[in-house]
Amino acid sequence: MTIYDIIFYLFAAITVVSAFFVVTTRNIVYSAYYLLFTFFGVAGIYVLLGADFIAVVQLVVYVGGILILLLFGVMLTNRITNVQIKTGTIKIVPAAVGVALFAGILSAALLKTNWKTINTEVPISTAHTLGLLLMQQYAVVFELLGILLLIALIGAASMARK
């Protein structure tokens, strides 16, 4: 067991334990902060996989964006406008069916995939290659995604104006 294995298990434990608390905690603000640790753990695992760009994007998008938005929403509604946010278990049967289906798909993907394992000494930075791929091979997809995001932005702005 090398030092990298220990670090991997540390991050994996952070991710799994905090993810467990995200769903079991009754207090929604606590859930949101456990989610912070889940995102952090996932980012750490990306770093260990040599995907440095994805790891930083994970932090930017999830911690800096989605989590803050979530907290903002919860705090604004909960404390300031006195809207009660319910945290509890409702509709157990459909939820169980959905979760079981999703778990089945995930475990099938896990078992059926032909995982590639490559031994690398020092992971090389991925930003350069990623940029070239996005600008050359996947340029159309990249532009389409840009348009999709623009549409979402315009939609949000027009909804906010009403």
């Binding site: 440095d52 930017v60 907290l71």
Partner: peptide, 25 residues
């Protein structure tokens, strides 16, 4: 010596925001 230095600095500032919100709440 991170290859994504500036980007990393932008990313970790998210923790500061989360911490400030936590303190306020």
């Amino acid at each position: 010596n991170l290859d994504l230095g500036v980007f990393f600095i932008v990313a970790v500032s998210g923790f500061v925001v989360a911490g400030i919100l936590m303190a306020g709440w």
